[in-house]
Amino acid sequence: MKVLVPVKRVIDYNVKVRVKSDQSGVDLANVKMSMNPFDEISVEEAVRLKEKGAVEEIVVVSIGPQQAQETLRTALAMGADRGILIKTDDNVEPLAVAKILEKVIGEESPELVILGKQAIDDDSNQTGQMLAALLDWPQGTFASEVILEDGKINVTREIDGGLQTLSLQTPAIVTTDLRLNEPRYASLPNIMKAKKKPIDEKSPGDYGVDTAARLSVVKVTEPPVREAGEKVEDVSELVTKLKAKGAI
């Protein structure tokens, strides 16, 4: 089986994000960038399936600036086999990402696409679902367990009421949740091997997809600073204070 894993380069999850002074977005200058953590989980899952012998080839795709190549290398160092960089400096919205991926899938014909359920920069949580709709493929979103069995993909999903297990026909889309696995750290020998793995360079134009924005960002603001609370001795003091503030 061939697996395709899209990966996105985002602000590192440890970085404290700062809003630009003109409120047009967040400041990306001199900020550490990394692979979207959910995508790391997707790559890890694909590599584990490969280690179990269920998968022959893992192709990773990234849509983004030239530096997204570093993100692809990270995925290759984790165990993916080759990469496709679709180079653009534009901000590509989920629908355009899904349309480009649809075309990539047309060329690559994977039987399974594993995506992160969302990227931590815009938290859209749309690409996997849109891609499934465009391809008319079955989807198992928010996966906490993925098992390949008799040509089917059994996906356990985290839903509000508990866990739900779906059985998907291939080809299929799976989006990963945080508890699916714990991604490995790249080892030095694998970082060195990753340098020799091929990365194809393409552009959105090669796939005939228009990446022009359909949404416009009106304003980005910091969440309001939370004020310090007050400690009260007992319920009557609480009630008195709430009354004084006009809350009850």
Binding site: S34, Q69, E70, R73, T74, A77, Y185, A186, S187, L188, I191, A194, K195
Partner: peptide
């Protein structure tokens, strides 16, 4: 370089 960044990152994670 890209390698050096990857090395630093992987050691930090380890």
């Amino acid at each position: 370089t890209e390698d050096q960044l990857a090395i630093k990152d992987a050691v930090e994670k380890t």
